[in-house]
Design a protein around this nucleic acid. Structure first.
Length: 299
DNA sequence: ATCCCGATCA
DNA sequence: TGATCCGGAT
């Protein structure tokens, strides 16, 4: 069976659906530079787009290009990252900006190897930038695309952690040959996965490719089957404690830069865990520990 | 409780 | 290959 023959009507329907339904995100439709697209992709890693939009707009006004971000202080960058979560992404994004400025003359590399060599840029983000910012023909593979392609063309749920070889093969087989169409394909499949073909409760009645979907035709076997291992709970974890410390630092009055030991201790009752988290934040470069037990954002 | 347009380290 | 890293929303 040739998946490519099946993908052509799906591609046409998704393209029409994309034209009518694509969310009007500020980095789409040619309104952002390649650097702006990269920033949007990094901010979107494990984070909903609706939360990203206001941060991206403020961020790009402050630092429109890699060189501008490279010149910022780390404290400014961490503060601007706000409550987006996973703040190490902010550090890596600034490292990335410095590499782009210093090694690539402030111009983002246009190859997969060049992009994936940048700090904080993995397979998904490198592929997404190549496709969405540069219009290159490359299969973008994230959890949404894996889920949609697996359902439509294989009739089964996408399970497990990393993308399997079979999933990568499928993504490459169904990718339209024409570069411009491949970009719309990547974006529309991803958008469908984010808004219609969702993991738990897909809106098959509203789906533009419901007549072509192997999964729907088969009666949606295994819908809701757990795709990932149960995630670590948030309450009480190091992640929560780290977040509390960083948030306290972000919210210091404008004329203060240091959180005293007493202020740190007031954040969390378990001082063993607290000290462990403070040390790990320091190792990550997200804070600096001071001799008296106080902490501050890096200069 | 589970899901988000993942990357990195061990 | 598995564990870790944030936070908001459903």
């Amino acid at each position: 069976m040739n998946d490519l023959q099946h993908s052509e009507p799906v591609c046409r329907k998704l393209a029409a659906w994309w034209d009518a339904n694509a969310r009007d995100l500020p980095w789409r439709f040619g309104r952002a530079t390649p650097w702006g697209v990269l920033v949007s992709e990094v901010m979107s890693q494990q984070t909903q787009m609706s939360r990203v939009v206001p941060y991206w707009e403020t961020w790009m006004r402050a630092w429109p290009d890699a060189a501008a971000l490279a010149d910022a202080t780390t404290a400014e960058v961490i503060t601007a990252w706000g409550r987006l979560g996973y703040p190490r992404r902010a550090l890596r994004l600034q490292e990335c900006a410095r590499v782009v400025r210093d090694r690539y003359a402030d111009e983002l590399p246009r190859t997969y190897d060049g992009l994936i060599g940048l700090p904080g840029i993995g397979d998904y983000t490198a592929s997404a930038v190549l496709s969405f910012a540069f219009g290159e023909r490359i299969a973008v593979i994230d959890t949404n695309i894996r889920r949609v392609l697996s359902r439509v063309f294989r009739g089964a749920e996408s399970l497990g952690g990393a993308a399997t070889l079979a999933e990568r093969d499928l993504a490459n087989r169904v990718l339209p040959t024409d570069a411009a169409r491949s970009v719309t394909w990547n974006q529309s499949v991803m958008e469908l996965g984010a808004t219609v073909c969702t993991a738990k409760n897909p809106l098959c009645d509203e789906c533009p490719v419901r007549d072509d979907c192997t999964f729907l035709a088969a009666g949606r076997p295994g819908l809701g089957e757990r795709r990932t291992r149960p995630r670590q709970r948030f309450a009480g974890t190091d992640r929560q404690v780290r977040g509390l410390v960083l948030n306290a630092l972000r919210n210091l009055p404008a004329d203060e830069t240091v959180l005293t030991r007493a202020q740190v201790e007031s954040l969390w009752a378990d001082h063993i865990q607290l000290d462990k988290c403070v040390a790990s934040l320091d190792e990550d470069g997200l804070i600096e520990m001071l001799p008296g037990g106080g902490v501050r954002l890096p200069r």
